[in-house]
Design a protein around this nucleic acid. Structure first.
Lengths: 225, 225
DNA sequence: TGGTCGACACTTGTATGGTAGTGTAGATTA
DNA sequence: TAATCTACACTACCATACAAGTGTCGACCA
């Protein structure tokens, strides 16, 4: 069984990248924060080089912006890019569930049920972190089961524009249980091999965040550009 | 007007990344080629550091694989991943043209016509490189005009899995003119605001490469994994 | 002759010093 | 006083040196 929270491994550069990514998405490093290679290196007891490589990777993921010879800052949340990203994700994931209706890996199907159960537990414990983790695993397993693991790799890249907004939307009272119900609706449609219904269920699920966006932006204008 | 072939600019790391990317896609560096940071650095008259950063970026794009403490190799073409990438690209670009039917930027629409003309010229000159360049610009402009520039950024990332196959398919007798006709069919459907027809035209266009794949793989088995 | 062990050449990963460009704050001058 | 100029502190960027891991080839031994 996979560890829900694998210990950081690999090179120092990869570890620091994962750590910074987590901190940015969790809003521990709010948009606009200036990042100094020197300072981060010192704080983590390593040299500037691995930190620099991590920065470059994060810049590719559009989580930070490197201004040559000036500095590196955490990018502000862009409502526009967030909506574009959501649109793209919707395009990919609706196509995936359509394919899943034709053929879906049996082992993945079993794992889906396990994940839904664990996600429900996390929701009952009001464990936001665990909930998001299992939510992600749900979508990963969907892509794998449909025979298109590359789809999730792609979604993950653009998700960077969305997950900070998701982070902000979760604490909103009882936001988690409806999401689980939506997951179940998607699975039910796949089981019934009903492509149109599966696509519509996924579309509705991914539109959820769009409904929360105006409120989020109004509550935290300083995080947006 | 944009230069069709902008001079390499930016940091040394970005220049060397662009150069390596080009060489890999053009198959100047065939799959399986071992790349040495040291050797490349020496050949380009720079230190290992910028080369290393370029390698990391290319590894993220899945064009090379870095084996820690062992070496870096150009990844082989995977027919499976190529088909997955094509599937994802189809999902994104069909969604884009659907959106383009509802509203399409006027300036982009004009640019589309210009590009089609230039692409036709390139085809007549049998200029493969220019043809591919304008082909890419066509799809970029489509995404921009539909108000979703991020879509092309995403496609570009997964296109890495396809580009080399496209490269091999072009020299095939008169492969370019049909592609232009398909582009025109897409534009015509958008002008008519016919979503279903536009989607179908794009789908057909992106299926073209799939039809060529078996022949390509049979002719160059050593490039595939 | 066949198998094992070890030095070596090679790789990537990390540390550190120096360079060039940029923003800023203070000094200087009209 | 206000505008301009200059020195400085800070940054990303690059070069170089060192560390750590891996595959290979050859010497050595049973």
């Amino acid at each position: 069984m996979n560890k829900p929270f694998p210990v950081p491994q690999g090179s120092a550069a990869q570890r620091i990248e994962a750590e910074l990514r987590r901190a940015i998405v969790a809003l521990d490093l709010p948009p606009g924060t200036r990042l100094s290679e020197q300072e981060i290196a010192g704080r983590h007891g390593m040299s500037r080089q691995p930190v620099r490589e991590a920065m470059i990777a994060l810049a590719r993921a559009r989580l930070v912006e490197i201004l040559p010879q000036r500095g590196t800052v955490v990018v502000k949340i862009s409502a526009r890019k967030m909506m574009e990203a959501r649109f793209i994700r919707e395009a990919i994931e609706t196509a995936v569930v359509r394919r899943a209706c034709s053929s879906f890996d049996r082992q993945s199907r079993q794992r889906i049920d396990d994940l839904l159960g664990m996600q429900e537990d996390a929701a009952r414990r009001d464990d936001h972190t665990g909930f998001q983790r299992y939510d992600e695993m749900f979508h990963v397993t969907l892509a794998e089961g449909a025979g298109c693991p590359l789809a999730w790799d792609t979604v993950q890249d653009i998700k960077a524009h969305m997950d900070r907004v998701c982070q902000l939307s979760l604490p909103g009272a009882n936001a988690m249980l409806p999401l689980i119900a939506q997951h179940k609706a998607i699975v039910a449609a796949i089981d019934a091999q009903d492509e149109a219904k599966a696509e519509e269920a996924m579309r509705f699920h991914l539109t959820e965040i769009l409904r929360a966006l105006p409120r989020i932006e109004a509550e935290h204008p300083e995080l947006f550009e």
